[in-house]
Simulated scan of single mutants.
Amino acid sequence: MSGPWILLRGLTRESRHWGAFATLLAARDGVLPIDLAGNGTEAHARSPLAVGAYVDALREQAQRRGASAPYRVLAMSLGGMVATEWALRYPGEIERLVLVNTSMRPHSRVYERLRPSAWPALVRVARDWEGNDSNGIAERLIHGLTCARRDTLAADLEAWREIRAGAHVSRANALRQLAAAARFKARGAPRCAVLVVSSRGDRLVNPVCSTRLARAWGAPHVEHPWAGHDLPHDDPQWLVDALHAGDMAANAAGQAAGRV
């Protein structure tokens, strides 16, 4: 029987940002959210400048928390790059990989990995980053860039400000994470089963990045019709259903291969 899904968030985000998605997935499978160095429970740590260093820290965390390989990993954005590197460096440790709205060289261009239309808002986020964001400017801008659903805005901002106050990510760590993401290059394709997931309404990362990645790796790709970059926030049940549909397809393919 497979172990829990390891959940990896992206740039400056942490386990609590999974929100309802983690609860829904936990009702069907076990979940083990792990924070990247510099975020959440690891906010005290210095974020590395290389994606490979995040992998080393994650492997230690997973083992310390009682998880055992092979792992199933669902990761988004920067977390997807880290999960990819993990699967490439330690192929025996990753059983399944689900990548949500991620991008990486050599499959995506700079202006696709971070849409130019998002740059002005990101500059404002960086300017207003330090402190607890009591006026909500930084988190409101992030919400506008990453979320298509607006009906939860007030509750989201309240929750996100509490997260920020309890485990603040420093501006230095945020910039180091951004640098690590920009420098990352996937050297080959993972050998494990991979599902690529994207959002058609992603205003931060062009969904063509996921299309090209899936094509290059020969991996299945599913696209949400309207969600933003933070797909787990916008439509958590859709993502849980897509994940389990992918599981069933992978199991069927495995059984068919075993009969050949």
Rank of each mutant, 00 (worst) to 15 (best):
P4T: 07
L7T: 01
L7M: 04
L11T: 12
T12L: 03
R13E: 03
H17P: 00
F21Q: 00
A22V: 03
L24F: 07
D29A: 09
D29N: 08
G30T: 13
P33I: 08
L36E: 01
G38R: 00
T41H: 10
A43V: 03
L49Q: 10
A50H: 13
G52H: 13
L58T: 02
A62Q: 09
Q63C: 13
R64V: 06
R64M: 10
R65M: 10
S68M: 09
P70Y: 12
P70Q: 06
R72D: 15
V73F: 09
L74D: 01
G80S: 11
M81F: 05
V82R: 02
W86G: 00
P91K: 14
L97F: 11
P106Y: 15
H107K: 02
S108I: 08
E112P: 01
R113L: 01
R113F: 03
R115Y: 04
P120D: 06
A121E: 06
V123F: 13
R124D: 14
W129E: 01
N132R: 14
G136V: 02
G136Y: 09
I137Y: 04
A138Y: 09
E139D: 09
R140C: 11
H143L: 11
C147V: 14
R149C: 01
R150C: 05
R150A: 10
L157K: 04
E158Y: 08
A159S: 14
E162F: 00
E162G: 12
A167W: 09
V169F: 02
R171I: 11
A172K: 14
Q177A: 15
A180N: 15
A182F: 14
A186H: 05
R191I: 05
C192D: 11
V196Q: 12
G201S: 07
V205S: 05
V205A: 09
C209P: 14
S210Y: 05
T211N: 07
A214W: 01
R215I: 01
W217S: 07
W217I: 08
A219G: 07
P225M: 07
W226E: 09
W226L: 09
W226Q: 10
A227Y: 00
H229A: 02
D230C: 02
D230T: 04
L231S: 00
P236M: 10
A245I: 06
G246T: 07
D247Y: 13
A249Q: 14
A250Q: 13
A253S: 12
G254F: 06
Q255K: 13
A257F: 06
V260W: 10
